[in-house]
Design a protein around this nucleic acid. Structure first.
Lengths: 241, 241
DNA sequence: CCCGAAAATTCTGCATTCAAAACCTTGCAT
DNA sequence: ATGCAAGGTTTTGAATGCAGAATTTTCGGG
């Protein structure tokens, strides 16, 4: 399954700009630059072996996506998030999950349901074994699969770009195990609704699931912040802007 | 109420790039270029009195927003939409409306509710008088006000950019009057739920409202297309891509 | 020794330039 | 006349150049 593409035939060499856009987004999402850090144009030009023009075009797009902040005459920085900012993002994602759930039920094939059920079982295994990295990877894959099953490229693209920002937070490894248990139960209900193709129900389940995930992530981040106020986990700004 | 901005102090002269981005978006949304038309870089540079660099940066952003399509080595075109593409957009907008409704109920002030009620009454007046332009303007303002009342800049920004694409369709003045009556009733229910701050209900009402609007718009466009297959109302591509 | 101002450097934003690709025209052969 | 190909023109995508703003460094006074 592809996501985010509008054109059916799009396997061309991809313009330099587009290539850089993807690579730069990954670079930032993967956390190679600290939050709030100035983005070193010249250095990145060297790293990606391009001139400033395509790099700057990519930065403009990333700014529109919300990953990066553009300060007039002062260059680009990695966007910093307040807790409120993170909640705002999750709220939008929850809305997208809501539609995704409804639509997926009407459009998904039996095979894709089966595939998602398999992912769910694998995730359950990882949960029992407390293999958190794998657990989160599968978790992410399930959500992505449901969104893609909605068969709506606009939805997939928006979902992906909102998620890129969230993924940068790297909350993955440390949620309370209590939350993990709740999340497993929510996922079971989600899979069940999907199996029954109960769209209205699934939409609401996914919406609520995201809301709770948001609360858990925010709680975790706040904890991290008070525990290590000036540490490298400084994803959150202390005050408002 | 501001929309789409992240920074509280943002009244700076606005970089040239940002200025051009807004102006070019308006230019396209207002329909100065036909769907599928090549976007004449040189001409627009002259019109906006800038060089190609900031203009091209703006085009990249508009492409990410979905208003414009970038063909490798063949420049930018105004994006053409299939009916499916339009439905996809409306589905995303409906999801955003769903969250907006829920959140608005928890965050809106009494004064803002009163303001929206006034807009609603004005719209009702326009409806009775069959002043369609004013009716649609107020309609749009009500939706915008509810979204803004959600107090979520990320949501407002996404809503605005999805709506830009829809607004280009210019279906406004041409929906069936039967649909207008239904829409009025839906709006009454929406206002009522908002007044009672019934978030769950409002979210679902707004979601369904958008779905129906989508059907009405698609019906209108399809009609236009069969009526005047090669006319200037060629917003839709005849076949799939 | 520290603070503040001024010069030097760096960086940003935009214009311009350049190579390559697409397109249009024209001329040729059938 | 029509189809095709070669040459020229336009347009695109990316690199480079340049003026102005921001940052850093240096230096003088307290």
């Amino acid at each position: 399954m592809r996501i985010g593409g509008y054109e059916p035939f799009e396997d061309q060499p991809a313009s330099l700009h587009d290539d850089i856009l993807g690579r730069l987004r990954d670079f930032i999402v993967e956390g190679h630059l600290p939050s709030g850090a100035r983005i070193p144009e010249r250095e990145l030009c060297a790293r990606f072996a391009v001139s400033r023009t395509p790099l700057r075009e990519a930065l403009k797009v990333l700014a529109a996506e919300g990953l990066v902040e553009l300060l007039p005459n002062r260059g680009a920085r990695v966007r910093e998030f307040t807790e409120a900012g993170i909640r705002h993002l999750f709220e939008v994602i929850a809305g997208l999950d809501f539609v995704a759930g409804r639509l997926a039920c009407t459009r998904i094939s039996d095979e894709d349901i089966a595939a998602i059920e398999r992912l769910h079982l694998d995730m359950y295994t990882s949960y029992l074994r407390r293999e958190l990295t794998e657990y989160f990877r599968l978790n992410q894959m399930i959500h992505q699969a449901i969104v893609d099953a909605a068969g709506n490229p606009v939805l997939s693209a928006n979902y992906a770009s909102a998620n890129a920002v969230i993924r940068r937070l790297r909350y993955s490894a440390n949620l309370k195990s209590e939350r993990l248990g709740d999340a497993m139960r929510e996922h079971e209900a989600i899979i069940d609704a999907l199996r029954r193709r109960a769209g209205e129900e699934l939409g609401l389940l996914m919406f609520e699931h995201m809301r709770k995930k948001c609360d858990a992530v925010c709680a975790y981040l706040r904890e991290q912040q008070t525990a290590a106020p000036s540490a490298d986990v400084a994803h959150l700004r202390s005050g408002e802007t």
